[in-house]
């Protein structure tokens, strides 16, 4: 029986792989079927994940194990239920209370987190002596790092018109951003191609057994 389900699993995987790849020809019913199943399974997966890995350890288990100590968790539980009332249009305004708490917490946490990690830490890492390097390649790189960061930040300053010396600096910033986007694009393309290779290995190895995966 286990063998049957193992073979069935490989066939399901192969059929759904072909159904998705059929989109390369044009949009068709097979692709649409696979796409909707993907949406449904994905939503179902996160539903179950949320229950088992977020709500059970943080809410249900503490309440069931020691209610006297953890009764305060009833407050977020009630707020969570109020959040679900958003599905009923006549009383959806009630969901504003839990949303306000989530938004307030997110704002407070993000304010501090991004101030530290994305502003102060990044500036600290940039303010350095560029001539402290083992070889000339490192020195050139560090000079480029400082120039690129400063000009890039200047490009993001939109309260002043980008013209004259300010415009030239912003333009240099764009060049650094373009190199960054190019590098990110290169990595993304490589990641997608490696996924494609993985799919071909599955089809030719696991499914057809032509190659040794």
């Amino acid at each position: 029986m286990t063998h049957f389900f193992s073979v069935l699993g490989i066939w399901l995987g192969a059929l759904f792989t072909f159904a998705i790849f059929s989109f390369l020809y044009k949009d068709n019913p097979f692709y649409k079927i696979a796409e909707q199943i993907f949406v449904g399974l994905s939503a179902g997966y996160w539903f179950v994940y949320t229950i088992f890995f977020i709500l059970m350890p943080n809410l249900f288990n503490p309440l069931l194990q020691d209610f006297a100590v953890n009764w305060i968790k009833l407050i977020p539980a009630v707020l969570g239920i109020l959040m679900l009332l958003r599905l009923i249009p006549s009383i959806d305004w009630v969901s504003r209370f839990p949303i306000a708490l989530v938004i307030g917490t997110t704002s407070g946490i993000f304010f501090l987190r991004y101030l530290k990690s994305d502003v102060i830490n990044q500036l600290t890492a940039t303010i350095m002596n560029p001539f402290q390097g083992a070889d000339w390649v490192t020195v050139v790189g560090q000079i480029l790092l400082i120039i690129g960061t400063l000009t890039g930040v200047i490009y993001f300053y939109f309260s002043k018109k980008h013209e004259g010396a300010f415009g030239v600096t912003a333009k240099i910033g764009i060049y650094f951003l373009m190199v960054s986007f190019g590098a990110a694009f290169g990595y993304t393309a490589m990641a997608r191609i490696s996924l494609l290779i993985g799919r071909l290995q599955f089809l030719l190895g696991d499914w057809l057994g032509i190659i040794n995966p």
């Binding site: 994305d118 502003v119 990044q122 480029l144 690129g148 960061t149 890039g152 951003l177 960054s180």
Partner: peptide
């Protein structure tokens, strides 16, 4: 290591 990090840092500081 260098131009890409510079661009990413500028984006991070701006977004931050």
């Amino acid at each position: 290591k260098y131009p890409n990090t510079a661009g990413q840092r500028a984006i991070m500081i701006g977004a931050g």
